[in-house]
């Protein structure tokens, strides 16, 4: 359960052997300055209680209160932690039918979630319900490719948010799936879907170049991988520059470990998704060092 893998993504990174899972990274502390932990869920689908003991597949698994216990443990280990979700926290148990998403958002707030994005099922009780339930959310609801201008969500959903954690600037933006054919128009109303690929590159440029973010994270509800040419997290990673991490959802994909996709800059974009219903809590750790931006080096050389 507490398997931990490390991936060298730069030449400078040292090889680490025999890491303790309880106290990570201490043994190579001198090789990095900052440690950022990202915890994540997706498609929790109102699974507030664990699955019942007679469930055919997931008996006694999941449950919000257990997840929060784990989150608190991680926070004790590293307070520099962001808690994120990739959408579809609504729909799936009577909690949603009875309370319309209120409890889901209240619990995410209590657990210290920093941000989530809008999944297609967030629209199940209409766009007006999203607006109403956001009053219970003390986290940011992020989406960059739905134009909400002519809807009740105008101003309530931000394209991105920058979080400064221990001096590290983390820019996070959200992407949502095409709603036409998936959600009745009567529910999403005048929401306009914009091309996620173009929007994503815009967002990365803004966060990386204008706001000088050290890390760029995308909360995506596009889906992990489609055989068709429909945009998915893998294609998104391949066809954009400089996204460090894509936390995906929608396809309920259980990844045992993240996928490291070579992006357009030739670097690695981490793509992860942890199934659904809160059966797992995903975790990605970033170990960062201060140093000159490599763009600077290039500029000097070109003189």
């Amino acid at each position: 359960m507490l398997r931990r893998d490390f991936l060298n993504i730069s030449i400078k990174a040292s090889t680490v052997l025999g890491m303790s899972s309880v106290v990570p990274a201490i043994s190579f502390k001198d090789t990095y300055d900052k440690h950022i932990t990202i915890l994540h869920t997706n498609d929790v689908h109102s699974q507030i209680d664990p699955f019942s003991s007679d469930h055919h597949k997931y008996a006694n698994r999941g449950g919000v209160s257990r997840r929060y216990h784990v989150i608190k443990q991680v926070l004790k280990e590293n307070k520099n932690t962001l808690v994120l979700d990739a959408g579809d926290s609504f729909q799936g148990t009577p909690y949603f039918n009875f309370y319309g998403g209120e409890l889901e958002f209240k619990l995410m707030s209590k657990m210290g979630y920093h941000a989530s994005t809008i999944g297609n099922h967030e629209f199940d009780n209409g766009i007006g319900n999203i607006a109403a339930q956001l009053e219970h959310a003390q986290f940011d609801m992020l989406n960059a490719n739905y134009d909400f201008t002519n809807t009740i969500l105008d101003g309530l959903v931000k394209p991105n948010q920058i979080y400064e954690v221990d001096g590290v600037k983390i820019g996070i933006f959200g992407l949502g799936i095409e709603l036409d054919g998936l959600v009745p128009k009567s529910l999403y109303k005048e929401t306009e879907y914009l091309n996620p690929l173009e929007i994503a590159q815009d967002q990365v440029n803004t966060l990386k170049n204008d706001y000088k973010c050290d890390l760029v994270v995308c909360l995506s509800h596009l889906g992990y991988k489609y055989k068709s040419d429909k945009i998915d997290d893998i294609k998104l990673a391949e066809q954009t520059h400089d996204i460090d991490l894509i936390i995906g959802g929608h396809t309920h994909t259980f990844l045992k470990e993240p996928n490291y996709v070579t992006n357009k800059s030739g670097r690695k974009t981490i793509v992860n998704q942890v199934g659904y219903a809160g059966l797992y809590l995903g975790r990605i750790d970033f170990y960062l060092s201060s140093g000159k931006d490599k763009n600077t080096k290039n500029s000097v050389v070109s003189l």
Partner: peptide
């Protein structure tokens, strides 16, 4: 700012 040197991963059931 900072540059990523290493990443780690984990999945808690």
């Amino acid at each position: 700012g900072f540059q990523v040197q290493q990443t780690g991963q984990e999945r808690t059931a």
